[in-house]
Design a protein around this nucleic acid. Sequence first.
DNA 1: TAGTGGTCTAGACCACGGA
DNA 2: CCGTGGTCTAGACCACTAA
Lengths: 264, 264
Amino acid sequence: MFFGLCKKIYRNYKFMNLYWGDLRLKARAKTIYYQIAEDLKQQIMTGALTPGEMLPSQSQIAAAYGVALMTVRQGLGVLIDEGYIYSVPGKGYFVAEPNLDKLVIKVSGESFFGQKLNITMNHVDILAADRKLANKLGVAVGKTILQMQLTLHSAAGPVALDDRYVPYRKGEPLLEKELQYAYFPHIIARHTNMVVARSDFSVNAMPLSQAEADALQAPAGLWGLCIEQVLYDISGNSLGWSRLVGRSDRYTLSGAAHSYAGRL
Amino acid sequence: MFFGLCKKIYRNYKFMNLYWGDLRLKARAKTIYYQIAEDLKQQIMTGALTPGEMLPSQSQIAAAYGVALMTVRQGLGVLIDEGYIYSVPGKGYFVAEPNLDKLVIKVSGESFFGQKLNITMNHVDILAADRKLANKLGVAVGKTILQMQLTLHSAAGPVALDDRYVPYRKGEPLLEKELQYAYFPHIIARHTNMVVARSDFSVNAMPLSQAEADALQAPAGLWGLCIEQVLYDISGNSLGWSRLVGRSDRYTLSGAAHSYAGRL
DNA sequence: TAGTGGTCTAGACCACGGA
DNA sequence: CCGTGGTCTAGACCACTAA
């Protein structure tokens, strides 16, 4: 049932010239373990193997392909990486349930909102942390904070305002060069020698303050889309806080979710 | 430099009773390959190995631990899975650059916005696709569409309205049972026998229509947070479209990003 | 007890990279 | 040329699961 026509002799791949130069994927595409993975993936996506169903055992697959166990395991490893299957020790491999519960938004520094944005630095200030700021950054009230505000704008005009707060570090001046990075974590990564491990963020609709509306040249009554982001190091210490508020008529956040999600 | 104290004799793990029953992670925690991975991960997170730096070669690691090559490879595989390193054939393994450019929002059916929400079905209708709907769903204008609208509400009152559209399929009646799933993809997955492979979504601030404001009992002038989602099968055919608009004062979207991201 | 997956070994050959 | 990672073999022993 599982292996109708799949007993082809994959093994003569050794005698073929398959490493077509630069493209690594093309090379991988013709390996035995990759073929095993593709065959099984095919059966999952076409419904021949349904979610929850058990796959044939490693040894059955090995026998079917005339191949060693480790090779089969490598193929199954690919499917595990890609989220198609999971294993239960002592029982077997099972087809995973598809789910779309992880929405992924990609934000590179280059194209924050799916469009190329120019950056203007409005001002850089030194200030003492008030209660709210101290709370966000996990520092004591009164602690010296570096604040910067910048504007992202497209050809149509200003798109978003971004206020960023970093605990001041002695002997680590912010360089002009660093400020050019559109995406806050990139600044932090260059500015501190800490490894930024995690960021928590939230997204919501917000009314624009008068100052924000002015700076964004926003029509009266327009609300903004607000993205807050707090950065942490590996120990959970806060490294920075960013609050971006943008014209909702000039950008939207977008992304995708995949049922069988591999690595990010 | 790389291996100061790490030449412990891991190999006697074989003679210890390490498989402490149910927890699989605890078992894995004491394997050789896992220890190798942890040691290297430690060096990366503490800065002993910096992004872009080359790791010692497989054979060096194997010699340092007194272990076979395949075992080392398995350990390095863990780090690749978790995004800490990558490999360049013919050269070596390298520490990856940390980046926080993938924001992940988890939405389970249980807690859509970080709070338990009750669901009320407002109505289910059959209608013919107009141009906009036909475009969204990738069907012909006039095609029969199943529409349903539901309200999500917390103890405080209504939180969001969700309009969902599914191309009508003969002989596949929507079951009352299926409608209880809060999260749209879950309904689709149960309703059709198609595998939902991908969903594209977008998030933005939107003014509430009069009908929406009434249904949500929203204060005058309040804008909503709108999440649109289109579901696709493996071939790229659209399986459904959902447009959720919610009171921005009663929920926010939130999530996290990780510098070294493993599987979703 | 038999079958499953999980770990590990000590070899092998291959393609790629750089000196 | 040699060192690198990538693939593969034919075994081994272990712990878990279910009959």
